[in-house]
């Protein structure tokens, strides 16, 4: 069996490839459902309290948000290059692009951390220290609750994705993807999904209805 490139439960490598890809897509659907719970809450509250939400987004740093969006899109690009390199069996190119993706991911999280610390500094974190309620009767905190829950869940997914990148990097070093690069492909799918979530979060949280 050891000469085969597929696990014992499969009959052919094609069957294994089909199964793992289907598994990943099914997993991404569960991820969509996970985020959709929060998107439903966002849509509902935004409809109820549009003014507080506009006020809330105007306290977010569009510049940093835009930079982060670009960073993530670039990381998706380097991830594509990594998958491409894996398909061609180029070990160095895989590793180079994985590192680039990882660095861009770190930049994203770093900028996110800066943004979070500004919010702490400005007392825009929900809870007893929240200091900017003004006329909005709690709804501003609702916006920031959603902001932290959604971007926090997203950042958590980024961290998991970066763990996977490190794993791929080590495996690539051992030449694991010479024959079968499905793992790189699957992590790529996951990484693109996480980017895609941000592509929704950014306009919803930072841009929509904002006084520019």
């Amino acid at each position: 069996m050891s000469t085969h490139t597929h696990a014992h439960q499969f009959d052919t490598p094609q069957q294994q490839h089909q199964a793992t890809r289907l598994g990943m897509w099914a997993f991404l659907i569960t991820e969509v459902m996970l985020f959709s719970g929060m998107f439903v809450a966002y849509i509902l509250y935004r409809t109820w309290y549009p003014e507080a939400f506009i006020e809330g987004s105007s306290h977010l740093d569009v510049m940093l948000g835009t930079i982060n969006t670009l960073v993530l899109i670039s990381s998706s690009f380097t991830m594509v290059l990594a998958v491409h390199a894996a398909a061609e069996g180029k070990k160095q190119a895989i590793q180079k692009n994985l590192v680039l993706t990882l660095v861009l991911g770190l930049v994203f999280l770093g900028i996110k951390a800066v943004e979070y610390s500004h919010k702490f500094h400005d007392h825009l974190v929900p809870g007893p220290n929240f200091a900017h309620e003004g006329i909005h009767g709690g709804h501003l905190q609702l916006f920031y609750s959603l902001y932290f829950a959604m971007t926090g869940t997203h950042a958590f997914h980024m961290i998991i994705g970066m763990g996977l990148l490190v794993y791929l990097f080590i495996r690539a070093g051992k030449g694991a993807f010479n024959k079968d690069h499905t793992a790189v492909e699957l992590v790529g799918l996951y990484w693109h999904f996480v980017d895609l979530v941000w592509i929704f979060l950014f306009p919803l949280l930072y841009l929509l209805g904002r006084h520019l």
Binding site: Y49, E51, I135, H136, G137, G138, H139
Partner: peptide, 20 residues
């Protein structure tokens, strides 16, 4: 009374403070 900004009667300004 609690969220005066939520619905404003036509012809009036949103000047009422919350009593929350």
């Amino acid at each position: 009374i609690l969220k005066p900004k939520a619905k404003i009667v036509q012809g009036y300004d949103a000047i009422m403070p919350t009593y929350k």
